Computed example of a mutant assay.
Amino acid sequence: MRDPRSELLRYLRDGREVIVWKLEGLSEYDARRPLTPTGTNLLGLVKHLATMEVGYFGEVFDRPFPQPMPWIEEDAEPNADMWATAEESRAEILDLHARAVAHADATIAALALDAPGRVPWWTTPDVTLHRILVHMIAETHRHAGHADIVRELADGAAGHREAVSNLPDVDPVAHRERVEQTALRFRQG
């Protein structure tokens, strides 16, 4: 049996890999384009998660990240961490994410699971590394689910990751049509 830290880190890494993999093979436009009414886009999800890694595994444990992040300053526009500006390249966002992950992993390796931290923006700010690991696993996998949907909307690509699709071997068009026909039976008016 794995130790708890290794197990938690494995789940966090799985989610991180999915998020980055969802960008592979996409045009610059499709990586940036908002595909939901709220503007959700793949490159923005990567930028947001990099920001969360830095905040939760850096600031919370007094382990500052060396790069300023103007999109999270008090005077930044709302949702500035959820999309890449024209001046921010995909390569820069991916590099930021990789460095944020390395910074987070260094915190995870250096501290005990019961190490105390403080999340000033939470109503109960006193936390442990264990709690933050669980929180970031949930946060990362939540956004990996968003990335699944956004990628499918962008170009039809679906699946968990390159080597593991986790999708049944069915005709997706026929399956969708069957689901639609069933839903239509319940449409009002």
Rank of each mutant, 00 (worst) to 15 (best):
R2I: 08
R2V: 07
R2D: 13
D3T: 12
D3E: 10
D3Y: 12
E7V: 10
E7I: 11
E7L: 13
L12I: 01
R13K: 08
R13Y: 06
G15Y: 08
V18E: 01
W21I: 05
K22P: 00
L23Y: 01
E24L: 00
E24D: 02
E24R: 07
E24Y: 02
G25M: 02
S27A: 02
Y29S: 11
Y29F: 14
R33Y: 14
R33M: 11
P37N: 14
T38V: 11
G39V: 07
N41W: 03
N41G: 00
L43F: 05
L43V: 06
L43D: 05
G44F: 07
V46S: 00
H48E: 00
L49K: 11
L49C: 08
A50S: 15
T51C: 10
E53P: 03
Y56C: 10
F57P: 00
F61Q: 07
D62F: 08
D62P: 03
R63G: 15
R63Y: 15
P64D: 01
F65R: 11
I72G: 03
E73N: 07
D75V: 01
D75E: 03
A76M: 00
N79Y: 12
N79H: 12
D81H: 06
M82F: 13
M82A: 15
M82C: 12
M82H: 15
W83R: 14
W83F: 11
E88W: 04
S89P: 03
R90A: 02
E92Y: 08
L94D: 05
L94I: 05
L96D: 04
L96C: 04
L96F: 11
H97E: 09
R99A: 09
R99H: 10
V101N: 04
V101M: 03
V101T: 05
A102Y: 13
H103L: 10
D105V: 14
D105M: 14
A106M: 14
I108G: 05
I108F: 10
A109K: 14
A110V: 05
A110E: 04
A110W: 04
L111K: 15
L113R: 07
P116Y: 13
G117Y: 02
R118G: 08
V119I: 08
P120Y: 06
W121G: 01
W121P: 00
T123R: 13
T123E: 13
T123N: 10
D126T: 02
D126A: 01
D126C: 01
V127F: 04
V127I: 08
V127Q: 07
H130T: 14
H130R: 15
I132C: 10
I132K: 09
M136H: 14
A138E: 15
A138F: 14
T140K: 12
T140Q: 10
T140G: 09
H141Y: 15
H146C: 00
A147L: 07
I149Q: 03
E152W: 04
A154V: 09
A154E: 09
A157Y: 10
H160V: 04
H160T: 02
H160K: 11
R161F: 03
V164Q: 14
V164A: 11
L167Y: 01
P172W: 08
P172F: 02
V173K: 15
A174N: 04
E177F: 08
R178K: 13
V179T: 07
E180V: 10
E180P: 01
A183D: 11
L184Q: 15
F186M: 09
R187G: 13
G189I: 05
